[in-house]
Simulated assay, not measured.
Amino acid sequence: MKFTPLLSAILLGTFSFTAAAATFTVEKTATGGAVVKIDGEFFTEYVVDQANKPYLWPIIGPGGQTMTRAYPMKTVEGEQHDHPHHRGLCFGHENIGGYDTWAERATFGDKPNAKSEERVKHLGAIKHRELKDIQAGETAAFTTVADYVDASGKKTLEEVRRHTFKVVNDTRLIDVDIDLIATEGDTLVDDKKDSGLSIRVPTNMAVEKEKKERGTGKIINSEGQTDADAWAKRATWCDYHGIVDGKHVGVAMLNHPKSFRHPTPWHVRTYGLFTANPFGLQSLDPKSESGALTLKKGEKLTLRHRFIFHLGDEKAAKIAEAYADYAKEP
């Protein structure tokens, strides 16, 4: 009996079915941001006009769950409503050039005290200026240019940020590479706890919810430190996972060896804040020397991180192996 080449390959076990590669699209929004889709389905939006800094929100994980808290962009019953400046996936710093892009006016409520009133005076902004170098297809990418400005709108620093989006097996990846450039003159980058690249995870995925109610989450880093013990510790990666909409999912953040002050300390909280902070050395550990530095005019500081949105815990997602691969990338 004669068999077709396809049937022969199947019978001999030499044929395998390969899932089609994901197809990304990037669509500019009317406000200057961008929507990223995978196979026509929403993945995330780069929002540029709703706060004093841009951010990605919401982010949809590989299981279909929303991997970012909705507040303050949307009020959802049962969510934590603290820290309105924790917007999706964002970058902020309490003091670059004397001004704060971590907090925003809503951070301090209607009746700020003397301490918070002083911080309000020093609120700055990361003003989106340009979106360029858009790529789409099996991966997606775009570059943004932004100005850091003081309370009066005067430019203090320039930022160039590259976002790259990928699907690898059953994970979704977002690379965020940031250059902070002292274009306007010598610029202080201060030692502050409230600084760095962040994501605010869904409330139910937190280790602890409001009023110390236990959530479903777990924090673990590359050194094996977990939950509250992972706070302020240096590690090459950190993972936050738990139950969202009935499924065990998580997000890992990887710190590339070429990133500023690798391995970074992690400002990761049991209530759901997840931040890589290489700036606040003494703020996170009083025994450490100050992390404050001055960028001379024309100098730049580079941050490189990868977010992996995955199913299961860090072992099921093979985060240690994924980090080893990421660390080899030039």
Rank of each mutant, 00 (worst) to 15 (best):
H248C: 08
H248T: 15
V249L: 03
G250I: 02
G250L: 01
G250N: 00
V251W: 07
V251S: 05
V251M: 07
M253A: 15
L254F: 03
L254V: 00
L254Y: 03
L254M: 09
L254C: 02
N255Q: 02
N255V: 08
P257H: 06
P257N: 08
K258M: 13
K258C: 06
K258E: 15
K258N: 14
K258W: 10
S259E: 04
F260G: 08
F260N: 07
F260M: 03
F260K: 08
F260E: 04
F260V: 06
R261L: 08
R261D: 11
H262E: 13
P263R: 07
P263V: 05
T264E: 06
T264D: 06
T264Y: 11
P265K: 11
W266H: 00
W266Q: 00
W266A: 02
W266E: 02
H267N: 04
H267I: 01
V268P: 04
V268S: 14
R269E: 10
R269I: 01
R269W: 05
R269F: 02
R269G: 05
T270F: 00
T270D: 11
T270M: 00
T270L: 01
T270V: 15
T270S: 01
T270W: 00
Y271Q: 06
G272V: 07
G272L: 01
G272E: 07
G272I: 06
L273D: 11
L273R: 11
L273S: 10
F274V: 08
F274A: 11
T275Y: 05
T275M: 01
T275L: 09
A276L: 12
N277C: 10
N277T: 05
N277L: 12
N277I: 09
P278C: 14
P278H: 05
P278M: 11
P278N: 15
F279P: 05
F279H: 10
F279N: 02
G280F: 09
G280N: 10
G280L: 15
L281A: 12
L281K: 12
Q282D: 00
Q282S: 10
Q282F: 00
S283E: 15
S283M: 13
S283A: 13
L284T: 11
L284R: 12
D285R: 14
P286S: 12
K287M: 11
K287D: 15
K287A: 15
S288L: 03
S288W: 03
E289S: 13
E289D: 14
S290W: 10
S290F: 14
S290E: 12
S290A: 09
S290H: 13
G291M: 09
A292Y: 02
A292Q: 09
A292K: 12
A292S: 07
L293R: 13
L293H: 07
L293C: 05
L295S: 08
L295K: 03
L295V: 08
L295C: 03
K296P: 01
K296W: 03
K297S: 07
G298I: 03
G298K: 02
G298A: 02
G298D: 04
G298Q: 02
E299I: 00
E299V: 00
